[in-house]
Structure formats: structure tokens, C-alpha cells
Amino acid sequence: MKKQEAEENGAAEIRPPVIFLGTNTCAGDMFSLLNSLAPGYREMLTDLIDCRYNYLLMAAEGEMALNALEETVKQFSGRYILVVEGSVPTRSNGLYCVIGYKNGRAVTALQAVRELGPGARYVVALGTCAAFGGPYAAAPNPSGSVPVQAVLDRPVINVPGCPVHPDWIMGTLAHLVLYGEPELDDFNRPKLFYRETIHNLCQRRHYFDSGIFASKPGEPWCMYKIGCKGPVTHADCPNRQWSGEHLSWPVKANTPCIGCTSPEFPEGDMPFFEHLPDVKLPGIRTTADGVGKAAGIITFLSIGAHLAGAILTGRLAHTFKKGFSEKGAGKIKDSLRKLLRKSVS
């Protein structure tokens, strides 16, 4: 039944071959995937996918591992799912990330992604680094790291998160296997998990609407004033909660959301405990609030100085004197006088 349904929906087969390729990554997304409970990792391997290569968890290593990779590409071209975890370093021909050695020559992550990507049925960018560059591509980005999409001339399904929630990747894989490609948003994220903002789903939304805000982490109110990125972050953390057992999530633990599923993460969200990112000008780095305060002070002082000048030079007095002695003002004065006389008499 499952197979029939899958075929009808355009999915290749029940257990398609899957390659988990690690590039510039902390492996946090793979560890997060291991926290999945329904289905669990074991169930995923036996019922959902045919795992042919996993950079972190496979027993094989060295050439044996690379051979498994090559075999999969040859045997299942156009049918396998490529899951890339991490950003792809491009500097020095990708030598900042080497996945192994073949015949004594380094096989770079850049080379691997470029060779494996075109033949895959689907390419999934696992975690924020793979999807949008993330911390590895943050300034000064010495390795020239880029997201997976930047080195492939084909659509990539982005499943961001730092780390990714186990359900987001497990659910995306399950959808690919059973129903084909899920509906994606403007940043190629499955709408299944990234449709709504954290803010709209937040259990503390009523505190936000009512103006009840935490002034420091640890308080049980809305985290907006201490830099919560919930209003500008798309993910279902408040509903789904972390991790496999769905127990808690940052705001529930009384700390702001840092916006880890957003394309601008982490630089565009920093400082995490500030409402807005810093403003960088040549030679100056300040907070957005700092700019606001400076603009306010300069405006106030400029107007104040001009007003003082206008008073001291007699310009202001002249303006009012002239204004009130003019024709129109005279008429107003006359009518007021007449009105006053009438009311008195």
C-alpha cells in the first residue's frame, strides 16, 4: 500500500539510497537526527531509507568508504538522495575540507558535492550551514565557505536549524520517500516545518500583545525586549518543541530565540540579546540603538542651539512680532476684539 501510494506520488521507491555527506560541519545536525524517536534512527535505516554512506556513523573508513560512495553513484544514478551537512569551502579549490584520499589525492568536499549533486534525485541541505552558510561562512570566512546551493546548478531543499530539529530532517526525508518533494517556501524550506514564524506560534504571544516583557533571561514573560528573534524567524519550535521527546524550546526555557533557521544567521541576528543587529560603518561598529540615540541627541542639540541663537539675536522675537502685525493676524485680532466687546456689552 505504502509503495503504491509512493509510486503514485512520484517517489522513486520505498527505501531509496541515501548519502549523508559531511562538509564544514560540527556534526550537530547528525547528532540531532539521532535524537529522533518516531521514527527513530534505526527505524529510518530499516524502513525508510537505504543508507549507503554516512560520513559520521558508518563503520567503513578511508578508501573503503569512498568506494561505497562511488558505487552508489554508479549503481543508483538519478535515484539516490544526497544529504549534505555543512557549508562548502571554496577557497584553495576546496582544500579547507577534505572528505578522504583517493589514490593518494585529496577528495575535497567541494569536489564531492559537485560530483554527487547532479546525479541525485534530491539534494537536501541539512542544517543552517549547508542551507545558508551559517557560522562557517560568517566573517571573515577564511575558508570561503558557501551554502550547498551556491555550488550546485540545481534546486536544493534547505532544512536549516542550528542544529536542525530531528523531526525537520526526518520528516523531510519521509516526505521525499513517500510523497516526493514537499511544498517549499521562498528560501526552499519545507513549509511543513517552516511555514509560520516562531512569534505567531509562541505560547507567550499574549504577553507580547499585552506589553508584558522580560527584562532579563530567566523571567517567564515575552522575550521580545531582550532580543528574541521569534518575530523574524520561521520555524515551528513552539509547537514541536525539542528534541525527540518534545519537552522544551528556548523561550520555554526562558531565553530568547536566536533565529537559527534564518538565512542571515548568525551575523544578521547578532548580538543575540539585542533587538537589532549591529550597525557597521567604516571604522565604527555600534548598536542600532546607539545610532538612534546619537541621531536623537544631535537633532535635539541642533534645534536647541538654533533656538538659542534665534532668541539671542532677536530673530525669533522679530518673527513673532512681524507675524502678529501682518494683515491676516490683524484681522484676527480685530474680530477677537469685536467678539469681546459684544460679549461684554
Partner: peptide
């Protein structure tokens, strides 16, 4: 610029400039 946070910053700074 990426996601929604950068335009949020530009919106605020533009608002500050407008007020000024």
C-alpha cells in the same frame, strides 16, 4: 540581505532618519 532581520534594522534606521 537574507531573511527578515536585516530589513528590520534598515526599517528602524530609516525611521530614525525620518524622525530626525
Amino acid at each position: 540581505t537574507g531573511g527578515l532581520n536585516p530589513p528590520r534594522k534598515i526599517h528602524y534606521l530609516t525611521g530614525v532618519a525620518t524622525t530626525a
